[in-house]
């Protein structure tokens, strides 16, 4: 099984940019009901555990928050590879640098270009690692924050976002021939505030098999992944 964890991939924008590979056999919007904020770490932790983790993760120390595999659906798999997923194998150093430049931007010390070049660099690193491990594990999770990180400073700039969505669509396309089960999921969506981007509630999911879901919660995938792991889906 492959899970593409795509931060801030927005249901409306997947449609708008006509991302043919991200839109799989079953696809739609997720709901964030029950969550007060759209916090990245909280949402991925909730995805992994099947529980709403908002109260458990204080905002101050959120980026360091880390789950044990036994707390997550990973326990249903004998072997797995999880690349950069928040709340589990998050690359602290890479993202800390990103946040530092983001802060710098708001203080007029860093340009958008400087910030974006780091984001793309980290993205390429994850991409390389993802394709290197493709087909080698019963469960491979690849996390990509491109849409979120670029979006925060440029979501209002349509051409730039089209490039980002195209890149993510290409990853989905290249992952396809593995003929594995593919789940694509985002933590939340995004909306424009002038040129900038703010988290929205229009999360996205898709799967290359029929799951029969309608507006699922991010926590409801835990059970589904458990059943997949136990071969109850075929």
């Amino acid at each position: 099984m492959i899970i593409l964890a795509l931060d801030a991939l927005d249901n409306n924008y997947v449609q708008k940019f006509n991302c043919k590979n991200l839109i799989q056999k079953e696809h739609g919007q997720t709901t964030l009901k029950g969550f007060n904020q759209e916090r990245t770490i909280v949402l991925w932790a909730s995805f992994l555990t099947g529980k709403n983790m908002e109260k458990e993760i204080p905002i101050k120390t959120q980026w360091e928050f880390k789950l044990h595999p036994e707390q997550t659906f990973l326990k249903f798999f004998q072997k797995y590879k999880v690349i950069d997923l928040p709340a589990f194998s998050y690359k602290q150093q890479n993202h800390e640098k990103e946040r530092k430049l983001l802060k710098g931007y708001f203080e007029d010390k860093v340009t958008v270009e400087e910030y974006e070049s780091l984001i793309w660099k980290n993205h390429e690193e994850n991409k390389k690692e993802f394709f290197k491990n493709l087909g080698k594990f019963p469960l491979l999770i690849g996390y990509f924050n491109l849409a979120d990180a670029i979006g925060h400073l440029s979501f209002g700039l349509t051409e730039k976002m089209a490039t980002v969505y195209e890149e993510l669509d290409k990853i989905a396309e290249e992952a396809k021939p593995s003929e594995d089960l593919i789940l694509i999921i985002s933590d939340h969506g995004m909306k424009a505030v002038g040129r900038y981007g703010d988290h929205s509630r229009n999360g996205f999911y898709s799967s290359n098999i029929q799951l029969g879901l309608n507006l699922p919660e991010i926590t409801s995938f835990y059970k589904i992944i458990e059943r997949i792991a136990k071969n109850e889906f075929s």
């Binding site: 959120q62 980026w63 925060h152 900038y196």
Partner: peptide, 18 residues
């Protein structure tokens, strides 16, 4: 744009980015 920028900064703070 200043206002949007200020809004965004505040929002990113509240989400823990900065």
């Amino acid at each position: 744009q200043d206002k949007e920028k200020a809004y965004m900064m505040q929002k990113l703070r509240s989400l823990g980015y900065m």
